[in-house]
Simulated scan of single mutants.
Amino acid sequence: MNYQKITPISIADGDGCRAVLWVSGCEHNCYNCHNPDTHDPTSGYLFDEAAEKRLFDLLKPNYISGLTFSGGDPLHPLNRGEVTRLARRLKTKMPEKTIWLYTGYLYKQICDLEVLRFVDVLIDGPYMDAQRCVGKFYGSTNQRIIQNPPLLYLGLRTEVCNIDN
């Protein structure tokens, strides 16, 4: 998996202060995408052991609420395995940290992916420029902020609930 950058502290990409991993690779090609430089899965840097160590070191302080996966699309087919492994490792090593994940896929397209077992908040759906909004944790009003997708994944909840409802 390749990545564009690691942001040590962000307050715009989820609740609290978060580290953000911006992965490379996106198939959605949304009009006026905020991060078009992340679309090519071969762009950026190889996510190697050094990058992983840096990421996990950034997550150690108590004031860091957790990790946000963004991009590109963390659920691009070339990213799914590595993102799942990282999410599993974070929940094992630092279970108090939350994981937010942004994807252009709709929940119904990805509901069977293992990574959802580890994600606390999922933002789904492609960016739609005609529905652009400012001041939220998403870019357009068609996107949903879904709390606790592991309950859906495990079949313990059947409906998708949006934080904003």
Rank of each mutant, 00 (worst) to 15 (best):
R89V: 00
N142H: 07
K91L: 01
C111I: 02
Y63W: 11
I99H: 05
K91E: 04
D57C: 13
D73V: 01
C133Y: 04
L78F: 10
R85P: 05
G72V: 07
C133P: 07
P95D: 09
K97W: 06
F137T: 13
L75C: 02
K136N: 13
K91Y: 03
Y105G: 03
T84V: 00
Q143C: 01
Y63L: 10
L113Y: 11
P74D: 06
K108P: 00
A130G: 04
I123D: 07
K91R: 08
D112V: 08
P77H: 11
Y63D: 07
L86M: 14
I110E: 07
Y63N: 12
R80L: 12
R117E: 14
I123K: 06
Q131W: 13
S65K: 11
D57W: 09
T103R: 06
G139I: 05
L58Q: 08
K60L: 10
Y107C: 05
G104F: 02
M128C: 12
G125V: 01
H76D: 09
R88K: 15
G72I: 03
D120Q: 05
L58S: 05
P150F: 01
Q109W: 12
M128K: 14
D124E: 15
L122F: 01
L101T: 12
T98H: 09
I64E: 04
L86I: 15
V83T: 12
I145M: 14
T68H: 04
E82A: 14
R117H: 09
G135F: 03
G81S: 09
N142R: 02
D112S: 14
E82Y: 08
G81K: 12
D57S: 15
C133N: 11
P149E: 06
P150N: 02
Y127N: 10
L113V: 03
R54C: 04
T98C: 00
Q147C: 15
Y138K: 03
V83R: 10
G135E: 04
Q109K: 15
R89C: 00
R89Q: 15
E114N: 01
P149K: 09
F69I: 10
T98A: 09
Y138A: 02
V134D: 06
V83G: 07
L55S: 07
P126F: 06
C133D: 06
V83S: 09
Q143H: 03
R88A: 13
R85C: 05
G66F: 14
I123N: 01
G71Y: 06
H76N: 09
L78S: 15
A130P: 00
R89K: 15
P149G: 05
T92D: 13
I123F: 08
I123A: 08
K60S: 00
L75V: 03
K93V: 14
F56A: 08
L78G: 10
L122E: 05
V119R: 02
L113F: 12
L75T: 02
L78C: 13
G81R: 09
L67H: 04
K91D: 05
N62T: 08
D120E: 05
I110Q: 03
L116H: 08
L101Q: 11
D129H: 15
K93P: 00
L67N: 06
A87L: 10
G139R: 04
G139N: 11
R144G: 02
L67C: 03
F118S: 11
Y107Q: 05
K136V: 11
